[in-house]
Design a protein around this nucleic acid. Sequence first.
DNA 1: CCTATTATAATCAGAATTGACTAATAAAGC
DNA 2: GCTTTATTAGTCAATTCTGATTATAATAGG
Lengths: 188, 188
Amino acid sequence: MNEQTLLVLGLLKAQSQHGYQINEFIERNLSRMTDMKKATAYAILERLCKGGYVRVHTEQEGNRPVRKVYSITHSGEEQFMALLRINLSTAGRMTIAGDMGLMFLDHLPLSEGLECLTARLKQVEVQLEAFNQPLTHEGLGVNLTLEHQHMLLQAEQVWLTAVLQRLQSEFLTMLNLKPVVVSGSLAE
Amino acid sequence: MNEQTLLVLGLLKAQSQHGYQINEFIERNLSRMTDMKKATAYAILERLCKGGYVRVHTEQEGNRPVRKVYSITHSGEEQFMALLRINLSTAGRMTIAGDMGLMFLDHLPLSEGLECLTARLKQVEVQLEAFNQPLTHEGLGVNLTLEHQHMLLQAEQVWLTAVLQRLQSEFLTMLNLKPVVVSGSLAE
DNA sequence: CCTATTATAATCAGAATTGACTAATAAAGC
DNA sequence: GCTTTATTAGTCAATTCTGATTATAATAGG
């Protein structure tokens, strides 16, 4: 019973759907929110079913193979609200994937660390560009979520840029203190 | 082969250890970095062993029960560096746990949403207080990591505060537009 | 000195997750 | 009209993770 369950219940609350539909929606619209894999969604649907939070009925369109359509039950709606309250009032760990590497930065020569972090910054900037598209205003919550992620990405960009600058100047200082003596270049 | 593996390899690179030792260290010093459970660490150690990245030998102190002590191999060191480079140069998804609830904020009455987010803000502030202790300067990477998490928490605090203010004023507007008529209170 | 509690060290069964695969239909290309 | 590719819909075995539990030793309390 976690964030993913909340998501699936929330989608079923909006409308009854079959697994594939849910997965498509997540992939197309919510890839920024979760990296849940398709098989996981099916597993969650099964669990919800067993717990009585959703109900299944099979459906067939034309002569296409049958599909399992899931609908949320009353108990499911209650569960959704409970999970929602918990999730909203809890501040999870504030760890963006990638802090582990940062912790071991010292194991790499500074110059290589700089390269790596530069690559990371570039990725952050690519992700930021996606926010330049006009944001379709869908509802209070969804907009807040987008705004939240945009804010965090920006903070990350600013920080990474500053860190890179610091490390770069440290790198230059190192070069001056322990200069590589190129024949005759500094002498005269 | 992920962040957790990088962590375990990194700890073994510093010194050979047994599982319990690793878990203690993580719990005491790195609880902010990961919420990996103890059994997971043992599982990772086993996998690393099977892959030839670490080597085991049993040890017995006094008449205490034997312990399995793990040491990193050459192959393990290489793997560590490879994982480190990947981790450092990749910007993972920027989702702090809790965005899912935010997305469904609309399903709660505004007043309750305010309560929940206020609770969340309080937790962020508690987490922030932990950073007021003088930070023991251990190494470039570790310090950067702490600084990073501090920065993100602060950004979160600022944002949450602003959001709460906006929602509060929206809430007040709502009350004015659709006021609850208390007998005679406004009439005269 | 005996008992209760805490610390040490780890295992294991069960739950959650995911990569790889299946299988049918529809659409596109020639 | 026939073959190839893409889309739809999902299953399953293998991997990964974790809560519960075990077992011994040390320490504290009375």
